[in-house]
Nucleic acid binder design. Structure first.
Lengths: 339, 339
DNA sequence: CGGTGGGAGTGAATCGATTCAAACGCCCTC
DNA sequence: GAGGGCGTTTGAATCGATTCACTCCCACCG
């Protein structure tokens, strides 16, 4: 049933070595021979067996990527960037979705290791770096995505979330807001903590600015909506005049929660800013201001570092790329009239 | 560097065959031996080489899935369902994103074939069934997802989109609407055509109901928003009193386009219904009515058919599962007062 | 005309897990 | 004590592409 190089070789009256050369280094083979072999491949419908190729090569031509949530457009974009860089080298990306679940994360790592992937890009859930350390010591390079390793023992590509948080709050203050609420959670996610930290720093610069925290269970639209409704339900005098949401999914939810039945007007009564600048942000009822992260560039760069580490081996100095986030202003933080 | 069964065998003073048995049929091996081998595996940090395994087995333990758009939650759900069923058999799903691009679709098929996947699930872009026919003739089972093969030569799992279209329009008519607009496109996508067809059929039952078509370039939020704005810009007398959007992403966009700056009220002035019932639909400013498709069940069933076909071989009679869509009513089609 | 350089092609060895027919002990029975 | 049966273990053969040391052969040079 299955057609192998051996069959092709026989059909073209050459040796298996020559078939392999036609496949991988056609310039080393006489044109007439190439033509004959190509014809035989075509006729027999030969398709390379990747398993055999990998076995010989020792490594697969794939790179594993473990993300927290495939549903989040931010990660989809990261994956896209990674895919682009990988494609340049004729490689592919395998995406695993940990769903913020530690077991799933582990089983993807196991799977990837058995597949002898070229390397693993991971947005790690916990601080279980020993696990990754072990993976690397067995020969699989690891690059952290969207997180920096505390002790810098892994290459990483991250965005300065503290700076991003400051950027958001500074913008709110500059447009005249004083009573700010941070909506986000859980605190186990590093990004949440950092963005809040940045917000605190920026708020501390202005004695008359207050910063309240509204905790959520996860970074989803539904949780945001609940938070928004809760804020809308308060007496007007106790509402904040601006909300900084830990990501755009939350912000979209908050916006909906606030606006139900012509509730609170955005940005007139409450300004709103999100984080990630997903495509959706510019397309909400009131277009959302946000903090942009270069998602696909992050993925692209991560693969880049991975390839570098893979080719240089252990004597390689780990790289730690940190991108700076960028403020994107839209209607949801339009300055108050007269402010 | 790499630890192989051979090394484990040496460390545990057994033969490679025994190590393999411990790995795959531990019950066939004496408990004491299992323990010794397991200890050796642990100590040496042995990790199975999947490539060698596959080479021997002839097939990989993965199933390829090619979707039109990973960003669409509908497909994410299909993938999740497929993953669940695959996991029951200890298999994995590889997701390829064709992005409605025929070249990308082709290269994923090539990739999957080289990897000797167990089978391919595909939501095909074009009607290039010969391509798939060839793939299958070389031994890779194929199941069509969200589309039925015209000549029934492939197993398929689909939803009756014509029925879904009728369901939507009938609901709009029953809640008192008469001037209906269908927003969707391009016509090259089968789902769009079928849903419109269903809408036409339902409208034809009522002589006083008109059905207008507003064409879009793709099924995205942005396109929907543009369509919504265009409709809002019309004089009130020329606006439809209900809109049926070809999918929920479009519907979300239409909603936004209509509501800008307190424009048209939904559902008072214009009712709106989408298709797919993505999670987002219930979380928009005005919760969206929609037509629900059992997305994850589709994925689950598709893998099921695939496994059946793979085990039975050619003498297998192709299965054609068709699910019926379901109407989900929310605020966006609340009946008009007094209608 | 012998010698040399190099382009073209060869084919056995290799990667690592799995398989399966055969061998090995060991106990029990006749 | 020979023989049968059974549970356990063995190890060579296998999957298919790639590699690389080696052979061939022809052209060109002195």
């Amino acid at each position: 049933m299955a057609v192998s190089v051996r069959d092709v070789a026989a059909a073209a009256s050459v040796s298996v070595g020559t078939v392999s050369n036609v496949l991988n280094r056609p310039d080393k083979v006489a044109p007439a021979t190439v033509a004959r072999v190509t014809a035989a491949i075509e006729e027999l419908g030969f398709v390379r067996n990747d398993a055999a190729r990998q076995l010989r090569a020792g490594r697969s031509r794939s790179i594993g990527l473990v993300v927290l949530d495939v549903r989040n457009p931010f990660f989809t974009d990261v994956a896209r960037g990674a895919e682009d860089r990988a494609a340049e080298e004729g490689m592919t990306i395998l995406v695993g979705n940990s769903d913020e679940n530690s077991d799933r994360e582990g089983s993807y790592l196991d799977l990837f290791e058995e597949q002898r992937v070229h390397g693993v890009l991971i947005s790690p859930l916990t601080d279980d770096l020993p696990r990754l350390e072990r993976l690397r010591s067995r020969g699989t390079p690891v690059v952290l995505v969207d997180r920096e390793s505390a002790d810098r023992r892994f290459s990483s590509v991250a965005v300065d979330d503290v700076a991003g948080g400051s950027l958001a709050v500074r913008h709110l203050v500059e447009t005249g807001r004083r009573r700010i609420a941070f909506v986000g959670g859980p605190r186990s996610i590093r990004q949440v903590v950092d963005r809040l930290e940045g917000a605190r720093l920026a708020a501390a610069d202005h004695p008359d600015v207050t910063l309240e925290v509204v905790e959520t269970e996860s970074l989803t639209v539904l949780q945001g909506r609940a938070a928004g409704e809760a804020i809308r339900a308060r007496p007007a005098s106790e509402r904040p005049d601006a909300i900084f949401a830990a990501n755009d999914l939350l912000a979209v939810g908050v916006l909906q929660g606030l606006m139900i039945q012509g509730g609170v007007r955005v940005p007139e009564e409450i300004a709103l800013i999100g984080y990630d600048d997903i495509d959706f942000a510019s397309a909400t009822v009131v277009p959302l201001s946000s903090i942009r992260q270069p998602a696909s560039l992050i993925g692209y760069t991560a693969v880049d570092l991975l390839l570098k580490e893979a080719s240089l081996g252990d004597d390689f100095e780990r790289d730690h790329v940190v991108f700076q986030p960028e403020l994107v202003v839209r209607d949801s933080t339009r300055p108050r009239i007269g402010a």
